[in-house]
Design a protein around this nucleic acid. Structure first.
Ligand SMILES: NC(=O)c1ccc[n+]([C@@H]2O[C@H](COP(=O)([O-])OP(=O)(O)OC[C@H]3O[C@@H](n4cnc5c(N)ncnc54)[C@H](O)[C@@H]3O)[C@@H](O)[C@H]2O)c1
Ligand SMILES: NC(=O)c1ccc[n+]([C@@H]2O[C@H](COP(=O)([O-])OP(=O)(O)OC[C@H]3O[C@@H](n4cnc5c(N)ncnc54)[C@H](O)[C@@H]3O)[C@@H](O)[C@H]2O)c1
Lengths: 241, 241
DNA sequence: ATGTCTTTGTGAACGCGTGCACAAAGATAG
DNA sequence: CTATCTTTGTGCACGCGTTCACAAAGACAT
C-alpha cells in the first residue's frame, strides 16, 4: 500500500482517521454501483459486503462523518454518495498532470476511470523532445521546460510521477516548487518532500514481493525444506568481513 | 563483524508482523543500491533514512529476522541483502501471468523491473481473439481458452489481473481453480476468494481520492468554508425518506 | 587488559484500529 | 397509543504497530 506523510499533530478533533479516509473511496464505489441500479436504500450489512469490509467497521467509519443513517432502514444511497463525495472533495474537479509519458504514463493517460471520479488530466509532460506535441490519449505531450507554467496556469495541485526512478526526485522538487502539494509516485524510489506535501506511492514490485513472501510460506508449510533455518550452509559466498 | 559462527537459528521466525513484511522490500531496494555502490556496511540510521522510515522501526523489523547486525558498526550490506531476499522468497524465480493485455497490461508486460526483482513474466493472456499471437514486449499473447493449461504447465502461483472490472471476478475464479494462490488486482472491484488465497489490490482512483481529501483540507484550512459541518443547507435535493 | 565510544537489540508505554455486543432509535403493524 | 421488529450508533476491550529510551555488545585505541 501507499504511505502518506503523517506528521499531523493530533490536535484535530474534527479529523477523520486515516484508515477511514482510505476506505471512503471503497464505499463510494459500491454506492455508485447501487445508485446506477436505482437502489434507494442499503443496510450497513449489505454495503459492507459489497465493499468487502466488516459491517461494524463501516458503521463506525460513517459515524465520523455524521449520523446519515436511519435505524431500522439503513442508508439512503443518493444522500450517502453525496456526503462521501463532499467529504473526499470530489464535488469539484481536480486538474492533474502526469509527468513521464512512457509505457506506464501513457496507460494512465488512456485510463478512463479518472474523469468519472472527479479528476481531469490537465496535461502530459515528458522530457523527451521527440514526444513534444505528439498526442497521447488525445492530449498533446508538452516538454518539461514548460512544467512550471503548466502547473501555474492550470492551478494544478496534484501531480503524478511516472518517470524513471532516477528522475523522480528532481521532477518532484520542480512540481512542488511550482505549487503542487499532492503527489502520486509510481517510480520505485523514496521521495523527500517538505512538510505540507502529501506523497502516496504505488510500487508494483513491492506488492509482488509481499505476495511472494506469503507464497513461500504456503509452499514451505509441510516440507520446511526450502527455507531451512539450520546453521551455516545456506549462506552466500560473501561473508561479513 | 559477526562471523558465520554466531549465525543464530532465529527460532522466533514464525510470525513476522505484516507491517514488517511490507517494509522488507523497501529495505531491500535501499540495500541493493548500496550494494551497487560497493558500500560494505550501513548503520540503522543511514539505512532508515534511505528507506524513508524511522531507525527504531527498522531495527525492530530486523530483530524479527534475527540478529544480523554488529553493535558499534552496523549491518553488512551483502549479508543483509541475502537474508532479506531469502525471507521474501526471492532466491527463487516466480513465474507470473498477466491477464488482460490492454493499456495497463501492456505497460506491465513492458516493465523491466520485474525480472530484476525475482519475477518472470511466464505468459500474457487476453480474451480478445484479435490479440492472440501478437507479441507484446516480445511475448506472444495467448487466448483465455488456454488459461488453465498455461497455469498448470508453468507452475504459476501468482497472477496479475488487469482486465476491465466486470471480468475480474470471473478471471480470478479461473486462475484460482487452475492453481493460482496469489493475485495482484488492478481492476477497481472487490474480489471474493476462498481462504488460502492472497489478494493485493492497486487502485489508482482510490489513491487520487485520498490525495484529494487531504488537498481539500489544506485549501479549506484558512477559510473553512468548503467543509462546514453545520446543519442542512449544502445538501442535494435528494433527501432520505 | 582496560576504557571509551558507537550502535544494536529490545522492554515497555502508548496510540490507533478493529470488532463485539447492545442500548437506543425509529419504522411498521395492530 | 402500544408492541414488536429491524438496524443504527457507539462504549469498550483487545491486539497490533510505533516510538522511546537504555542496557549490553562489540569495535577500537592505548
Ligand atoms: N511500466 C510499469 O508497469 C511499471 C510498473 C511499476 C513501476 N513502474 C515505474 O514507473 C516509471 C515509468 O515506467 P515506464 O515503464 O513507463 O518507463 P518508460 O521508460 O517507458 O517511461 C519513462 C518516461 O519518462 C520520461 N522521462 C525521463 N526523465 C524525465 C524527466 N526528468 N522529466 C519528465 N519525463 C522524463 C521518458 O522520456 C519516458 O517517456 C518507472 O520509474 C518504473 O520503474 C513502471
Ligand atoms: N490504464 C490505467 O492506467 C488504469 C489505472 C487504474 C486502473 N485500471 C484498471 O485496469 C484494468 C485495465 O485497464 P486498461 O486501461 O488496460 O483497460 P483496457 O480496456 O485497455 O484493457 C483491458 C484488456 O482486458 C481484455 N479482457 C477483457 N475481458 C477479458 C477476460 N475475461 N479475460 C481476459 N482478458 C480480458 C481486453 O481484451 C483488453 O485487452 C481496468 O479494470 C481498469 O479499470 C487501469
Amino acid at each position: 500500500m501507499a504511505t502518506g506523510r503523517n506528521h499531523r499533530p493530533a490536535t484535530r478533533s474534527r479529523g477523520i482517521p486515516e484508515a477511514t479516509v482510505a476506505r471512503l473511496p471503497l464505499y463510494l464505489r459500491a454506492l455508485t454501483a447501487l445508485s446506477e441500479r436505482s437502489v434507494p436504500t442499503v443496510s450497513s450489512e449489505e454495503l459492507a459486503a459489497a465493499a468487502g469490509v466488516n459491517s461494524a467497521k463501516l458503521r463506525k467509519d460513517f459515524s465520523y462523518l455524521g449520523s446519515y443513517g436511519t435505524r431500522g432502514v439503513g442508508y439512503d444511497v443518493e444522500y450517502l454518495v453525496y456526503q462521501i463525495s463532499r467529504e473526499l472533495g470530489l464535488t469539484q474537479d481536480w486538474p492533474v498532470v502526469i509527468v513521464g509519458i512512457g509505457n506506464l504514463g501513457a496507460a494512465l493517460a488512456n485510463y478512463g476511470g479518472f474523469a468519472s471520479r472527479g479528476f481531469r488530466v490537465a496535461a502530459l509532460i515528458d522530457a523527451d523532445p521527440a514526444m513534444a506535441g505528439r498526442p497521447v490519449a488525445g492530449i498533446p505531450v508538452q516538454h518539461t521546460d514548460e512544467l512550471e507554467k503548466i502547473i501555474t496556469d492550470n492551478g494544478v495541485s496534484i501531480g503524478v510521477i511516472s518517470t524513471p526512478a532516477g528522475a523522480a526526485q528532481q521532477v518532484c522538487e520542480r512540481l512542488i516548487a511550482a505549487g503542487v502539494t499532492s503527489i502520486l509516485n509510481f517510480a520505485p524510489t523514496v521521495l523527500n518532500v517538505p512538510d505540507g506535501v502529501d506523497v502516496r506511492k504505488v510500487d508494483l514490485s513491492i506488492e509482488l514481493q509481499i505476495l511472494a513472501f506469503h507464497e513461500q510460506r504456503k509452499s514451505g508449510e509441510d516440507s520446511e525444506g526450502t527455507a531451512r533455518k539450520g546453521p551455516d550452509g545456506d549462506m552466500p559466498a560473501v561473508m561479513p568481513a
